[in-house]
Amino acid sequence: MKYLLLVGAFILAAGTFGNPSNAMFQDSTMKNAVINEALYQEIKSYSEQHEIKPIDAKVDRVWKAMPGYNGLIVDVDASYDKMKTAGKFDETKLVFKEVPPSVHLDDLDPQPIFRGNPDKPMVSLLINVAWGDEYIPTILNILNDQQVKATFFFDGSWTKKNPDLALMIYNDGHEIGNHAYSHPDLQKRSRTETMEEISKTNDVIEQTIGFKPKWFGPPSGSFNQQTIDVAHELNMKMILWTVDTVDWKKPEPSEMVQRVVSKVENGSMILMHPTDPVAKGLGAMIADIKAKGLRLGTVSDLMSENRID
Protein backbone atom coordinates (compact mmCIF):
# COMPACT_ATOMS: atom_id res chain seq x y z
CA MET A 1 0.00 0.00 0.00
CA LYS A 2 2.78 2.37 0.89
CA TYR A 3 4.42 1.48 -2.42
CA LEU A 4 1.27 2.37 -4.38
CA LEU A 5 0.98 5.78 -2.67
CA LEU A 6 4.58 6.61 -3.54
CA VAL A 7 4.02 5.63 -7.17
CA GLY A 8 0.87 7.76 -7.33
CA ALA A 9 2.66 10.79 -5.93
CA PHE A 10 5.49 10.29 -8.40
CA ILE A 11 3.07 10.10 -11.36
CA LEU A 12 1.23 13.28 -10.21
CA ALA A 13 4.48 15.19 -9.82
CA ALA A 14 5.72 13.94 -13.17
CA GLY A 15 2.51 15.05 -14.82
CA THR A 16 2.83 18.53 -13.40
CA PHE A 17 6.49 19.16 -13.97
CA GLY A 18 6.58 17.21 -17.20
CA ASN A 19 4.00 19.58 -18.72
CA PRO A 20 5.27 23.17 -18.51
CA SER A 21 1.97 24.59 -19.74
CA ASN A 22 0.07 23.07 -16.80
CA ALA A 23 2.50 24.56 -14.32
CA MET A 24 2.30 27.99 -15.96
CA PHE A 25 -1.50 27.86 -16.00
CA GLN A 26 -1.70 27.07 -12.30
CA ASP A 27 0.79 29.79 -11.47
CA SER A 28 -1.10 32.30 -13.64
CA THR A 29 -4.43 31.43 -12.04
CA MET A 30 -3.03 31.87 -8.54
CA LYS A 31 -1.38 35.16 -9.46
CA ASN A 32 -4.59 36.49 -11.06
CA ALA A 33 -6.60 35.54 -7.96
CA VAL A 34 -4.19 37.50 -5.78
CA ILE A 35 -4.37 40.56 -8.08
CA ASN A 36 -8.18 40.49 -8.14
CA GLU A 37 -8.37 40.19 -4.37
CA ALA A 38 -6.09 43.19 -4.07
CA LEU A 39 -8.27 45.11 -6.52
CA TYR A 40 -11.44 44.26 -4.60
CA GLN A 41 -9.88 45.44 -1.35
CA GLU A 42 -8.67 48.66 -2.99
CA ILE A 43 -12.20 49.45 -4.17
CA LYS A 44 -13.58 48.61 -0.74
CA SER A 45 -11.01 50.84 0.95
CA TYR A 46 -11.85 53.71 -1.43
CA SER A 47 -15.54 53.27 -0.64
CA GLU A 48 -14.95 53.46 3.10
CA GLN A 49 -12.82 56.59 2.77
CA HIS A 50 -15.27 58.43 0.49
CA GLU A 51 -18.62 57.42 1.97
CA ILE A 52 -21.12 60.26 2.40
CA LYS A 53 -23.59 59.60 5.20
CA PRO A 54 -27.32 60.21 4.61
CA ILE A 55 -28.95 63.09 6.46
CA ASP A 56 -32.20 62.48 8.31
CA ALA A 57 -35.22 64.73 7.95
CA LYS A 58 -35.65 66.83 11.08
CA VAL A 59 -37.58 69.62 12.74
CA ASP A 60 -35.20 72.57 12.88
CA ARG A 61 -35.57 75.18 15.61
CA VAL A 62 -35.73 77.98 13.03
CA TRP A 63 -36.69 76.38 9.71
CA LYS A 64 -39.14 73.80 11.11
CA ALA A 65 -39.59 70.68 8.95
CA MET A 66 -36.60 69.99 6.72
CA PRO A 67 -36.32 67.04 4.29
CA GLY A 68 -33.58 64.45 4.47
CA TYR A 69 -30.89 63.88 1.87
CA ASN A 70 -29.53 60.62 0.52
CA GLY A 71 -26.00 59.53 1.29
CA LEU A 72 -23.61 58.09 -1.29
CA ILE A 73 -21.38 55.03 -1.32
CA VAL A 74 -19.42 53.05 -3.87
CA ASP A 75 -21.14 49.87 -5.05
CA VAL A 76 -18.07 47.68 -4.49
CA ASP A 77 -19.30 44.59 -6.34
CA ALA A 78 -20.55 46.51 -9.38
CA SER A 79 -17.34 48.55 -9.52
CA TYR A 80 -15.23 45.41 -9.25
CA ASP A 81 -17.13 43.82 -12.15
CA LYS A 82 -16.25 46.80 -14.35
CA MET A 83 -12.55 46.71 -13.42
CA LYS A 84 -11.76 43.00 -13.08
CA THR A 85 -10.92 42.45 -16.75
CA ALA A 86 -8.19 45.08 -16.70
CA GLY A 87 -7.24 43.96 -13.22
CA LYS A 88 -6.46 47.45 -11.93
CA PHE A 89 -8.22 50.26 -10.08
CA ASP A 90 -9.83 52.88 -12.34
CA GLU A 91 -11.69 55.72 -10.64
CA THR A 92 -13.66 56.45 -13.82
CA LYS A 93 -15.25 52.98 -13.58
CA LEU A 94 -16.55 53.36 -10.05
CA VAL A 95 -20.27 52.70 -9.62
CA PHE A 96 -22.08 54.68 -6.93
CA LYS A 97 -25.38 54.14 -5.20
CA GLU A 98 -27.48 56.37 -2.98
CA VAL A 99 -28.29 55.46 0.61
CA PRO A 100 -31.61 56.76 1.99
CA PRO A 101 -31.84 58.34 5.44
CA SER A 102 -33.56 56.64 8.34
CA VAL A 103 -35.98 59.52 8.99
CA HIS A 104 -38.08 60.96 6.14
CA LEU A 105 -40.18 64.10 5.82
CA ASP A 106 -43.35 62.02 6.15
CA ASP A 107 -42.11 60.68 9.48
CA LEU A 108 -42.14 64.13 11.10
CA ASP A 109 -45.05 65.65 12.97
CA PRO A 110 -47.01 68.24 10.92
CA GLN A 111 -44.86 71.34 10.54
CA PRO A 112 -44.49 74.19 8.02
CA ILE A 113 -41.65 73.88 5.51
CA PHE A 114 -39.56 76.97 4.81
CA ARG A 115 -36.64 75.45 2.91
CA GLY A 116 -35.09 72.31 1.49
CA ASN A 117 -32.11 70.42 2.85
CA PRO A 118 -29.10 72.77 3.20
CA ASP A 119 -26.79 70.14 1.66
CA LYS A 120 -28.78 69.98 -1.58
CA PRO A 121 -27.57 72.56 -4.15
CA MET A 122 -31.03 73.36 -5.48
CA VAL A 123 -33.57 76.16 -5.08
CA SER A 124 -37.25 76.48 -5.99
CA LEU A 125 -39.34 79.32 -7.36
CA LEU A 126 -42.73 79.67 -5.66
CA ILE A 127 -45.16 81.69 -7.78
CA ASN A 128 -48.42 82.57 -6.02
CA VAL A 129 -51.17 83.29 -8.53
CA ALA A 130 -54.30 85.21 -7.54
CA TRP A 131 -53.87 88.17 -9.93
CA GLY A 132 -51.42 89.52 -12.50
CA ASP A 133 -52.67 87.54 -15.50
CA GLU A 134 -51.03 89.89 -18.01
CA TYR A 135 -47.52 88.94 -16.86
CA ILE A 136 -47.94 85.17 -16.87
CA PRO A 137 -47.17 84.59 -20.60
CA THR A 138 -43.89 86.52 -20.26
CA ILE A 139 -42.93 84.60 -17.13
CA LEU A 140 -43.72 81.27 -18.82
CA ASN A 141 -41.58 82.20 -21.81
CA ILE A 142 -38.63 83.05 -19.56
CA LEU A 143 -38.97 79.80 -17.62
CA ASN A 144 -39.14 77.86 -20.87
CA ASP A 145 -36.11 79.64 -22.34
CA GLN A 146 -34.12 78.96 -19.15
CA GLN A 147 -35.40 75.35 -18.97
CA VAL A 148 -36.66 75.88 -15.42
CA LYS A 149 -39.75 74.38 -13.82
CA ALA A 150 -41.42 76.32 -11.00
CA THR A 151 -44.23 75.58 -8.55
CA PHE A 152 -47.30 77.77 -9.10
CA PHE A 153 -49.71 78.05 -6.17
CA PHE A 154 -53.21 78.68 -7.56
CA ASP A 155 -55.89 80.68 -5.79
CA GLY A 156 -59.12 78.68 -6.21
CA SER A 157 -61.31 81.56 -7.36
CA TRP A 158 -58.63 82.63 -9.86
CA THR A 159 -58.45 79.09 -11.23
CA LYS A 160 -62.22 78.99 -11.70
CA LYS A 161 -62.11 82.28 -13.65
CA ASN A 162 -58.99 81.38 -15.68
CA PRO A 163 -59.14 77.65 -16.48
CA ASP A 164 -57.34 78.02 -19.82
CA LEU A 165 -54.45 79.94 -18.27
CA ALA A 166 -54.23 77.46 -15.40
CA LEU A 167 -54.13 74.56 -17.85
CA MET A 168 -51.47 76.31 -19.95
CA ILE A 169 -49.19 76.64 -16.90
CA TYR A 170 -49.70 72.97 -16.04
CA ASN A 171 -49.16 71.80 -19.62
CA ASP A 172 -45.86 73.70 -19.68
CA GLY A 173 -44.64 71.19 -17.11
CA HIS A 174 -44.84 73.31 -13.99
CA GLU A 175 -45.96 71.99 -10.62
CA ILE A 176 -49.26 73.20 -9.19
CA GLY A 177 -49.94 73.94 -5.53
CA ASN A 178 -52.95 75.16 -3.54
CA HIS A 179 -53.21 78.81 -2.42
CA ALA A 180 -56.67 78.65 -0.77
CA TYR A 181 -59.85 79.86 -2.48
CA SER A 182 -60.37 83.52 -1.63
CA HIS A 183 -56.98 84.71 -0.34
CA PRO A 184 -58.12 84.63 3.31
CA ASP A 185 -56.21 85.44 6.48
CA LEU A 186 -56.24 81.89 7.81
CA GLN A 187 -55.16 82.92 11.30
CA LYS A 188 -58.62 84.44 11.65
CA ARG A 189 -60.61 81.60 10.11
CA SER A 190 -62.31 78.72 11.88
CA ARG A 191 -61.34 75.12 11.34
CA THR A 192 -64.40 74.58 9.14
CA GLU A 193 -63.63 77.66 7.04
CA THR A 194 -60.00 76.63 6.65
CA MET A 195 -61.02 73.15 5.55
CA GLU A 196 -63.42 74.63 3.01
CA GLU A 197 -60.83 77.08 1.61
CA ILE A 198 -58.29 74.34 0.97
CA SER A 199 -60.69 71.57 -0.09
CA LYS A 200 -62.65 73.78 -2.46
CA THR A 201 -59.43 74.89 -4.15
CA ASN A 202 -58.26 71.29 -4.50
CA ASP A 203 -61.56 70.42 -6.15
CA VAL A 204 -61.40 73.31 -8.62
CA ILE A 205 -57.77 72.57 -9.53
CA GLU A 206 -58.50 68.87 -10.00
CA GLN A 207 -61.51 69.64 -12.19
CA THR A 208 -59.45 72.07 -14.26
CA ILE A 209 -56.19 70.19 -14.81
CA GLY A 210 -56.94 66.67 -13.58
CA PHE A 211 -54.36 66.86 -10.81
CA LYS A 212 -54.80 67.24 -7.05
CA PRO A 213 -52.08 69.34 -5.34
CA LYS A 214 -50.05 68.03 -2.43
CA TRP A 215 -48.46 71.35 -1.44
CA PHE A 216 -50.35 74.18 0.25
CA GLY A 217 -49.13 77.78 0.38
CA PRO A 218 -51.12 79.93 2.85
CA PRO A 219 -52.02 83.39 1.50
CA SER A 220 -49.72 86.12 2.82
CA GLY A 221 -47.95 83.44 4.86
CA SER A 222 -50.68 83.70 7.48
CA PHE A 223 -51.27 80.48 9.41
CA ASN A 224 -51.49 78.85 12.82
CA GLN A 225 -51.31 75.28 14.10
CA GLN A 226 -54.90 74.74 13.04
CA THR A 227 -53.95 75.57 9.45
CA ILE A 228 -51.11 73.06 9.55
CA ASP A 229 -53.34 70.36 11.03
CA VAL A 230 -56.10 70.86 8.45
CA ALA A 231 -53.61 70.66 5.58
CA HIS A 232 -52.18 67.49 7.13
CA GLU A 233 -55.66 65.95 7.35
CA LEU A 234 -55.98 66.58 3.61
CA ASN A 235 -52.64 64.78 3.01
CA MET A 236 -50.92 68.06 2.18
CA LYS A 237 -47.80 69.77 3.48
CA MET A 238 -47.62 73.50 4.07
CA ILE A 239 -45.00 75.43 2.11
CA LEU A 240 -43.68 78.86 2.99
CA TRP A 241 -40.50 80.55 1.75
CA THR A 242 -36.89 81.27 2.54
CA VAL A 243 -36.41 84.42 0.44
CA ASP A 244 -39.10 86.94 -0.53
CA THR A 245 -38.90 89.08 -3.68
CA VAL A 246 -41.42 91.52 -2.12
CA ASP A 247 -42.39 92.16 -5.75
CA TRP A 248 -45.79 93.56 -4.75
CA LYS A 249 -43.97 96.68 -3.52
CA LYS A 250 -42.87 97.24 -7.14
CA PRO A 251 -39.09 97.39 -6.54
CA GLU A 252 -36.66 98.14 -9.33
CA PRO A 253 -36.08 94.78 -11.05
CA SER A 254 -32.28 95.00 -10.82
CA GLU A 255 -32.39 95.85 -7.10
CA MET A 256 -34.85 93.01 -6.47
CA VAL A 257 -32.63 90.54 -8.31
CA GLN A 258 -29.48 91.59 -6.46
CA ARG A 259 -31.15 91.44 -3.06
CA VAL A 260 -32.73 88.02 -3.69
CA VAL A 261 -29.67 86.38 -5.25
CA SER A 262 -27.43 87.60 -2.40
CA LYS A 263 -29.61 85.63 0.04
CA VAL A 264 -30.10 82.48 -2.00
CA GLU A 265 -28.27 79.33 -0.89
CA ASN A 266 -28.74 75.56 -0.90
CA GLY A 267 -32.38 74.69 -0.27
CA SER A 268 -33.81 78.20 -0.66
CA MET A 269 -37.42 78.70 -1.76
CA ILE A 270 -38.06 82.05 -3.42
CA LEU A 271 -41.49 83.66 -3.19
CA MET A 272 -42.83 85.74 -6.09
CA HIS A 273 -46.00 86.66 -7.92
CA PRO A 274 -46.82 87.39 -11.58
CA THR A 275 -45.85 91.07 -11.35
CA ASP A 276 -44.04 93.57 -13.56
CA PRO A 277 -40.76 93.44 -11.55
CA VAL A 278 -40.72 89.63 -11.80
CA ALA A 279 -41.50 89.67 -15.51
CA LYS A 280 -38.58 92.07 -16.04
CA GLY A 281 -36.10 90.55 -13.58
CA LEU A 282 -36.77 86.80 -13.62
CA GLY A 283 -34.35 86.02 -16.45
CA ALA A 284 -31.44 87.74 -14.70
CA MET A 285 -32.40 86.17 -11.37
CA ILE A 286 -32.33 82.66 -12.81
CA ALA A 287 -29.03 83.28 -14.60
CA ASP A 288 -27.42 84.61 -11.41
CA ILE A 289 -28.72 81.68 -9.35
CA LYS A 290 -27.29 79.22 -11.86
CA ALA A 291 -23.99 81.11 -11.76
CA LYS A 292 -23.81 80.32 -8.04
CA GLY A 293 -23.75 76.62 -8.94
CA LEU A 294 -27.36 76.01 -7.93
CA ARG A 295 -30.01 74.11 -9.84
CA LEU A 296 -33.63 75.20 -9.98
CA GLY A 297 -36.47 72.73 -9.55
CA THR A 298 -40.01 72.36 -8.31
CA VAL A 299 -40.91 72.03 -4.64
CA SER A 300 -41.22 68.27 -5.17
CA ASP A 301 -37.71 68.22 -6.66
CA LEU A 302 -36.36 70.16 -3.72
CA MET A 303 -38.14 68.04 -1.10
CA SER A 304 -36.91 64.83 -2.75
CA GLU A 305 -34.08 63.01 -0.97
CA ASN A 306 -32.38 62.31 -4.32
CA ARG A 307 -28.87 63.69 -4.56
CA ILE A 308 -27.51 66.28 -6.93
CA ASP A 309 -23.83 65.61 -7.62
Rank of each mutant, 00 (worst) to 15 (best):
E48A: 12
L125Y: 05
G177Y: 07
S268G: 09
P213M: 11
V278Q: 04
V257A: 08
F114M: 06
K82L: 07
P277M: 09
D107I: 02
P20N: 11
N70E: 10
N117T: 04
D203A: 11
P110R: 09
R295L: 14
L126T: 05
P213V: 13
S300K: 06
T16M: 15
K160C: 11
K44V: 00
I289F: 03
A166L: 02
P253D: 14
A279I: 01
F211K: 14
L302I: 09
D155W: 05
N117H: 06
K188V: 02
P118K: 13
N128A: 11
T201G: 06
K214P: 03
R191S: 07
F96I: 01
T208C: 04
T159H: 02
H179I: 01
V95K: 01
M66C: 03
K250P: 07
M1V: 12
D27G: 14
K249I: 12
Q41R: 13
K97Y: 08
P218G: 08
G210K: 05
D56Q: 07
D109N: 12
V243H: 03
T208I: 03
R115G: 02
V74Q: 00
P274W: 14
W215T: 08
I139C: 03
S190C: 04
L271M: 13
R191L: 08
I52P: 00
T192W: 08
V99W: 11
G177D: 08
L240T: 04
R295T: 14
R191F: 05
I270T: 00
K263Y: 12
I127R: 03
G87W: 06
N224W: 01
E196A: 09
S79I: 01
L296T: 03
P184S: 06
I176H: 07
E255F: 03
V62E: 12
V257P: 00
F223V: 07
M66W: 01
L39V: 00
V299Q: 05
V278A: 03
K93I: 00
I142K: 06
N162R: 13
P112N: 08
W131C: 04
V264G: 02
L165P: 05
G156D: 02
S102R: 13
T201S: 09
K200D: 14
P101T: 10
N36W: 13
V148W: 07
N178P: 04
K53D: 10
D81N: 15
S102F: 11
T16P: 04
M24K: 15
P112Y: 10
N36G: 13
T29W: 11
Y3E: 14
T227S: 11
K58W: 15
E51S: 07
G156Q: 02
D229S: 12
T138V: 12
I228A: 07
L39G: 01
M24W: 11
K44G: 00
